[in-house]
Amino acid sequence: MQCRVELSQIDPTLGNLDANLAMHIAQARSALQRGAQLVLFPELSLTGYFLRDQTPEVALRVEDARLQPLRELSREVTLGVGFVERGSDERLYNSYALFEDGRIVGIHRKVHLVTYGMFDDARDFAPGEGFRIVESRHGRLGILICEDMWHFSAAWLHFLGEADAIIVPSASPGRGIRAGGEEGLHSARVWNRLQDAMALLFQTWILYVNRAGSEDGLIFSGGSRVVDPFGEETARLPLLETGSLSCQVDSETLRRARVATPLRRDEKPQLVAAEIARICGQRGP
């Protein structure tokens, strides 16, 4: 892979598809002018996050004509966009689509719906059913939507799938402002730790794109960032504000990381599969 990625830390309007779509097009066009080849938006970027009963009202089928401007623009630049997908049987998914060469080349449906604390994803969404690599012109891309990233197994599957980069779109509200430790939001620090660890263990680029703005009293923390396959941060956006950053992502760094420490080569997926079968056989899923 060899591409210029732009992370677009936007503040979508809750439930206003037209306004959000226009913002996506404008952002992507200006990123294109800056030389971007892959523009990534946050989780549910076309709709906003805490939709509740708006969820079915803003849901789109993948073939919906309203996505046409994104398909058109994707002839010039690859786009990663979050939206509510209307599937078969009126099931709704928290989905993330990659638009490329005038079509959707891959889609991930959030598997780990977050349903605790302030979150109620599973009330409104059906869970996705897998973690598949998307073959993009820019490389092998894995997608983990927000809470998916909190499950080691999800990123591990993309590691086995030989992902060059894992895209992590998110809508994470900032929380934890206690003094006495490191500065900044506790929630953002924890996210950073997760990304660094996954990048290091799975030797892949992590492209984390969170949103800004607020929905009622929940203030999204921003802090989008790029972590290289050594687990080192190479670019980041500020907390809490909208903005965009551009960063070069390449295969050479992947190669150097994997030659230095050949973790994928030494991984034992079949042994793990057998152990999982044994544990699940004993204890149930």
Binding site: I177, R178, A179, E183, G184, G213
Partner: peptide
């Protein structure tokens, strides 16, 4: 140092942004 102490700069920034944005 009290266990309840907060980072005031951060709280100020979030609350100012919250008021401006939500209004």
């Amino acid at each position: 140092m009290n266990r309840l102490d907060i980072q005031c700069d951060l709280a100020e920034r979030m609350l100012v942004q919250f008021l401006r944005k939500e209004a």
